[in-house]
Amino acid sequence: MEKVQRALARVGKVVLGKNEQIRLAVACLLARGHLLIEDLPGMGKTTLAHALARIFSLDYQRVQFTSDMLPADILGVSLFNADTREFVLRKGPVFTQLLLADEINRATPKTQSALLEAMEERQVTLDGDTYPLPLPFFVVATQNPVEQGGTFPLPESQLDRFLMRISLGYPSPEAELALLAAGDLRAEALDLTPALTVDELQQVMQAVEQVHASTDLLGYLQRLLEHSRSSGLFQAGLSPRAGLGMLRAARAWALLGGRNYVIPEDIQAVLVPVCEHRLQPVAGGAARGAAGRLLEAVPVVP
């Protein structure tokens, strides 16, 4: 666990003033979830992704999405080898441990769904053959929140595939000063010493699954889910998948907090990043903060 803490600290040195977001991102990865970062360009999304890859010693691929990208550009293609007279797989960039999918909303829906399917199933099917993706496999996708011409915002159903959506936002004045003083930190991110080996990371991920969630805690989570459905605040309530995701994220958060059991605070900490992109407020309701209202409405202990 110390190593994970050390990893958090190291990432904090290259992504300044964003400890909360770093912690969430790491929790998301530890919970085997994919991460969507929604931010304007230049906020350090890529730096964060680089740092995460380095610190956990993961294979890393970056794909800049464009509108003319085809599914094969991501997944790969099986080619006919004239010498051996058989098909060989030319693997796409998706065959990696950490994939940074930059500006995913620039790709056509077809390409998007190819990637999202691979994310969900953790395998790629080409011409009827199935190829498993490496383990672990994370996608950190970034999306530009401002609607621009030629973008295809991810549909709601596919947003569900991301465990969390976070945004970094502008740095605080102190962090910005530090940033200016330090210069470009992207290079440093690439030079970070790994804090954990892949095996160690896998162990931590297994430990996450062992974190205890008591009946009372599950009851609280269930009441939150139910309230999202019955309160009338949202067009559609949270799905069972969202509930499971929330539990996994809360477990990882608890582990990061040095506990082997989940407390309601863990749920509260991960609720907004896990749920906000899955909830559509009813007409007239503000999109942001809707998940927060959920927290206020449901008592922790009935």
Partner: peptide, 14 residues
């Protein structure tokens, strides 16, 4: 070109 879907490849010619 890399990325062309296999169904577009002219396998007969190949």
């Amino acid at each position: 070109q890399p990325g062309d879907p296999p169904r577009m490849v002219d396998w007969k010619a190949y």
